[in-house]
């Protein structure tokens, strides 16, 4: 606490919003740019332009959070009742310092940064979201990952009294997700605590959630209460519900079709009724950063 940074700046020092937005876009575009630069293709500016974030309304009223109902508007309607303070995350399994980590305690240890990521749902719609958060690797370092650990399992809060959607067995609650350790440690993988520079609204997974931008949205588990390091692949909710349709990896991949939706293209929300579909990018546009994680793997088998 003693080393907390104190603000000496005045409103006059605030970066003009246009500059600020532009800078954020370029930073977020870095991923795609790195890949494109490698191929000597598009200038960075063009890449940055495609990453104009969606509106606050898009991001906060169009959510899949089945604990509050299966309608896209249900979470915004019903998640208000969720108590997110106090909050703690149990970190256990193959770690040196297992225990309950209080949310404020975690915030005190982490450095928050803002990142604009593409967000691609398995249902073939997408958004661009400005997240605030920290790298998952930093949180895992806090607990000390042991050498035998190969996977990270996550669990969402299960509190029926505040989650009307859990009255129905839409999924086998609590919601569970998982990553391979190298995916979890990847610098793009973050734990988000906010969007648009504000605290996460409940419907977006308050107070902290996973964000894995190269995977379908359901991998980015919300309102995390437990993180377990294991040596075997953990069960994950959608895979448990329908293994034929939802694999453990669930990387965004236009070449691997889903039984329900072609994944070759997507509808970027925010364009209104007559917006054109756009091509889906492999690994959601983060191929240059993450493709190496899957070297030698048959991605249509490990979908």
């Amino acid at each position: 606490m003693a080393r907390r940074w104190t603000n000496t700046l005045t409103p006059a020092d605030v970066t003009p919003k246009a500059t600020f937005m532009n800078r954020r876009q370029i930073m977020a575009g870095l991923g795609g740019m790195a890949g494109l630069a490698g191929m000597g293709a598009l200038p960075g500016q063009a890449q940055a332009e495609t990453l104009e974030p969606n509106s606050w309304e898009d991001v906060t009223t169009y959510c899949n959070y089945y604990e509050f109902g299966t309608g896209k508007g249900d979470p915004a309607k019903y998640a208000g009742s969720l108590t997110t303070s106090p909050w703690s995350v149990k970190i256990d399994g193959l770690v040196d310092r297992p225990g309950d980590y209080g949310f404020q305690q975690i915030l005190g240890e982490m450095t928050l940064e803002e990142r604009i990521y593409r967000f691609r749902c398995v249902e073939a719609w997408s958004m661009v979201v400005p997240w605030t958060g920290f790298e998952l690797a930093d949180l895992l370092a806090l607990a000390g990952v042991q050498t035998g650990a190969k996977y990270v399992a996550f669990e969402t809060l299960y509190r029926p009294s505040e989650m009307p959607g859990t009255a129905y067995q839409v999924l086998d609650w609590p919601y569970r997700e998982g990553l391979r350790l190298d995916e979890a440690m990847h610098p793009l993988t973050m734990m988000a605590t906010g969007i648009f520079g504000k605290d996460l609204p409940n419907q977006n997974g308050a107070p902290l959630r996973l964000v894995v931008p190269w995977k379908y949205g359901f991998k980015s588990i919300k309102s995390v209460v437990r993180i377990t390091l294991t040596d075997e692949e953990p069960p994950t909710s959608w895979n448990m519900a329908n293994a034929r349709e939802y694999g453990f990896y669930s990387n965004v991949n236009p070449e691997v079709s889903h039984p329900r939706w072609s994944q070759a293209s997507e509808r970027r929300l925010g364009g209104g009724l007559f917006a054109s579909r756009q091509d889906t990018l492999k690994f959601n546009g983060y191929e240059a950063e993450v493709a190496a994680l899957y070297d030698g793997m048959d991605l249509s088998e490990h979908f």
């Binding site: 969606n54 509106s55 309304e57 898009d58 009223t61 169009y62 896209k72 508007g73 719609w125 509808r267 929300l269 925010g270 209104g272 009724l273 917006a275």
Partner: peptide
């Protein structure tokens, strides 16, 4: 409503 934004973030699916 779809054209004027009254159907939410995803007017296509809503319709």
């Amino acid at each position: 409503n779809g054209v004027t934004g009254g159907l939410g973030p995803d007017p296509v699916k809503a319709l």
